[in-house]
Design a protein around this nucleic acid. Structure first.
Lengths: 209, 209
DNA sequence: GTCTATATAATGATAGAC
DNA sequence: GTCTATCATTATATAGAC
């Protein structure tokens, strides 16, 4: 029976950036590693990438990752914190807008197009949720930057629960549309999907009764 | 600087079932491996467990997994298919019930209690979505057993999109509540959470306009 | 500051005894 | 039908040269 090295990390050989024109710049190297790690974690999750992949994507050797960040786990933590620090959706501004449900629905449809790359913070967490440490980091970031602000921006009863379900809904859509690639979501006509999401989000944003 | 074997698989040493009282029973061994794999994949995802962990949980050696299933991937496929074959929620019966939104909301809150173990099919997929092959298997199962039946049970326009968003919402709640452990969901009062979910689900189930 | 080379451990899968 | 022992590969992390 044949060996089975199918679906290995080599399946996605990130082009090794040469980076020959900028040697010996600590800050730039650090930045390059962080960027490469952000891309890699968003695509393949915490367990799905090795430090070698990340290093290759940054044009350096794996050793430098430990030199600059101590370990893969600490690198992940720094990436996660950085990526989730500035929410691009689910902000108080969205809630404060004239028709928040429609605005959010439109933004969500745009930002989770199958090939789109924004909303990386959530995607990194969704793809890394199996890792205990990754889930812990993500939970703290979500609570600090999303749950709290969103909850405060709402009016009416059950604010915490409604904010959490809005979060869950956004995460679920992104999960099913981008990570799982469910055809009904991935291939949906944007206008129709927007309409459906607007209705559901409205039921969560508008104060009940 | 110390080595860092922290957060390794040994962090969760599934008690090695002795199983000394039932030697040499092919069917029973197969069943034991499947059960152990289901538990393990649901908790730690496809990449998060090794064949050794699964074998130990079944009280056998790792070799038998390859003997009975050929490979870890084939074992996962069989577990995924088996677990998602009989949906416990999101069935046409729920939609056909008198007040589907309330019924589904109540069931969802019950089934995603932080320590609950049902709805394993979805949980396995959510925790394994980073693995390309796992995502593929899950997508097929979700489409076959959830998306299609749910879509057919709905009335009105945009059925496919509404069914998909219902799926995304259920997945998102399970993700945030069970996998991530977001306090606002994990510690929410069941009645309040149920009310909020009922409203959102109603907006998706009830035909618009 | 960055490299090559290596240490150590864990992985999925296999060979052959009983 | 199940085991022990082992292979080949890959993982993260470290040591020391330049």
């Amino acid at each position: 029976m044949k060996k089975r090295p199918a679906e290995k990390k080599n399946t996605h050989p990130e082009q090794t950036k040469t980076r020959a024109s900028r040697p010996r710049d600590a800050a730039a190297t650090r930045r390059a590693i962080l960027d490469s790690a952000r891309r890699a974690f968003a695509r393949f999750g915490y367990d799905g990438v090795g430090v070698r992949d990340i290093a290759a994507g940054a044009g350096v050797t794996a050793m430098l990752i430990n030199r600059y960040f101590g370990s893969k786990e600490e690198l992940f933590a720094e990436v996660a914190v950085e990526t989730m620090a500035t929410p691009v959706i689910l902000t108080p501004e969205f809630i404060a807008s004239g028709c928040p449900a429609q605005t959010m629905a439109s933004a969500l449809v745009q930002l989770t197009k199958p090939d789109a790359t924004p909303l990386e913070g959530f995607l990194i967490m969704l793809r890394s949720a199996a890792s205990e440490r990754a889930a812990e980091i993500g939970r703290e970031q979500i609570e600090a930057h999303y749950q709290k602000t969103l909850s405060h921006a709402l009016r009416g009863p059950h604010r915490a629960e409604r904010a959490a379900v809005i979060l869950a809904m956004v995460a679920g859509v992104q999960m099913m549309r981008q990570a799982m690639g469910l055809p009904a979501l991935a291939n949906a006509k944007p206008a129709a999907l927007e309409r459906v999401l607007e209705r559901a989000l409205g039921a969560l944003i508008d104060p009940p009764e």
